[in-house]
Design a protein around this nucleic acid. Sequence first.
DNA 1: TGCTGGCACTCTGTATATCTGAGTGCTAAT
DNA 2: ATTAGCACTCAGATATACAGAGTGCCAGCA
Lengths: 359, 359
Amino acid sequence: MDISERKKKILAAVIEEYIETAEPVGSKTLAETAGLGCSSATIRNELAELVAMGYLEQPHTSAGRVPTVEGYRLYVNELMARQQLSDEEILRLTDELDQCLAQMDGLAADVGRLASQMTNLPAMAITAPRAVTITRFDFIYVDANTFIMVLLLSDSTVKNKLVRLPISVEQTKIEKLSTLCNANFTGLTTAEITPILISATERALDDVMGLTAVAASFAIEALVQSAQPRMTVAGQNKLLEHPEFQNPETAQSLMNYLNQLPREFPELMAEDTGVKVFIGPENVSEALRDSSVVLATYDAGAGVRGIVGVVGPTRMDYAMVASKMQMIAETISQAMIGGQKPPLGMDTKLMLRGDESHE
Amino acid sequence: MDISERKKKILAAVIEEYIETAEPVGSKTLAETAGLGCSSATIRNELAELVAMGYLEQPHTSAGRVPTVEGYRLYVNELMARQQLSDEEILRLTDELDQCLAQMDGLAADVGRLASQMTNLPAMAITAPRAVTITRFDFIYVDANTFIMVLLLSDSTVKNKLVRLPISVEQTKIEKLSTLCNANFTGLTTAEITPILISATERALDDVMGLTAVAASFAIEALVQSAQPRMTVAGQNKLLEHPEFQNPETAQSLMNYLNQLPREFPELMAEDTGVKVFIGPENVSEALRDSSVVLATYDAGAGVRGIVGVVGPTRMDYAMVASKMQMIAETISQAMIGGQKPPLGMDTKLMLRGDESHE
DNA sequence: TGCTGGCACTCTGTATATCTGAGTGCTAAT
DNA sequence: ATTAGCACTCAGATATACAGAGTGCCAGCA
């Protein structure tokens, strides 16, 4: 069955009104607010048909109409106008992002915080790094009992560790360790740094102090850590602001879910880019069946992908949320790919200076 | 006025009962459960006196009694028996701590998570580092356009940064930069690294590329970052489990407070060591007036102090919470001071190995 | 054929009245 | 001092009445 233009208009009006008020919306208010030139009776007829078509429903015989999942879905897919962000918002957004891009490590947390702040909803952020190897080992000899290990990873991040030894060791030994590590352990994945390889290295170094073991275990730790997606949840308090979570049980179950998310997030991992909206039961997880999730995927360069998303009531301002999430994702992608990786190297001001002097 | 032994017993019984049930407790239940050999009428008389003394109160004429702040205070100070932790709990605790001590950086977050988990309450953790200086600069030359800066700070942490240059630079230049930085910027606080000093260094290096600026700004950034206390909040979802936060508004205001805590936490900073209990209005912050806070201070070595605390209803199991917090604080202190700083260097297993070979 | 005004009907949420029971304070007896 | 007993109080639960928002449908109108 086809859906007429007017029905679409009415459906959109119902949804937008419901998003604002969280109350079932009736024919009368629609006739007054939405500017379609017809009376409440006509609208009632249309509403009845929209109910029959499955886009709306009534909580009970004499209440207004409430959107169904199908209604929201239609709205999100076809009807809603993606909101234009105000200049002020865009400014604020880029500003905040600049700050949080300053340190790569806190990225997940900061992006999440940002998304939560902008949408007034709880947000989660995941950075999903790809498999990584060690590009280069360096050992800085501090004193006879101390050296610093520095690892350059293939994704251009650097890890370090201060190592204190219970007994002294000569600098030449450390230098030899460096040569061996660079020869034996670079370019390898976690699995490829085998105990056999380690003990071979140990023999080559004539290592009685376990130096190789320190180096190797730190290398593996760094690789594992990099391979581990960082996940954070921010702004849980925002949940309680929405009337559908006034019931403490509902709120609690969702918060509990969010708090244990890190362990089972993979289901959320969208494969392709862009903004995705999951409405109510469209969510895989049981705990999200009464909520909606908006996810945006961003590209952090070097094949690294991240996800930032928010959770809220099915009645959420999809237009607003979706456009903000898209904006966040795009800005991050641009900053991290287009911007020649400012977070890793130097600040842009300096970059410019360098460019000028090169000119 | 003096408080008799029996009154103390009754007060403790009331509080313990109330902690369990969250309901005003009456004379009859008291006569039955608490094993003091007297009838409900006697207890009624005693209760009336306890009310007069300010340790208990009645929500209304014909309800049971509820502890007042003074009642809780007396209980916490004198009456409660610090709970003995079970072996299983101790084991679990030390186990978890071992894991989270592995990386210093996540310490605040992990300690918070741990405290929250063990007490079933929202927890916050703060690491408060003292002022720090740079002990040593190292520059690792990767290729003509890239080098890694490594800073060893006076608190034995290491910071690093990968620097990508828009134009090439010779290794000798980097080496000279290293010498100059070590000469000019080590041992200084943020304030002491002045623009004058920086530009002097710039001239000495004949620096047209802004290398000095990169180095200096990273140095300052590292110092500032170290000086910034790390604060986290964990387990906010636990809040909703307690009946006093069933009212969404109460819960929300407290959660909002917790979420913005990082900006105004200093008031919480207890000056001296040990476990502290703040009951209801004893808290400085308005938002905490209806809740209680239990704080434990731990010593992370090198003068670094941290705080871990939980927030909950005034009706909380002080005995349980206080002993667990104390345990957490003690374990961390021991691990970080007694244990020769395992988080910074090598794992203990290795340490032992080293010791043996030295023997 | 499609729109509209009108009317009877339905149903929830709120307000009001009633009831129940836990718990008290007090008094008189031990 | 302690206890048993009794009348009293008050919050919370249950039941009832009420108002209002919204519907469905019918009959009249363009």
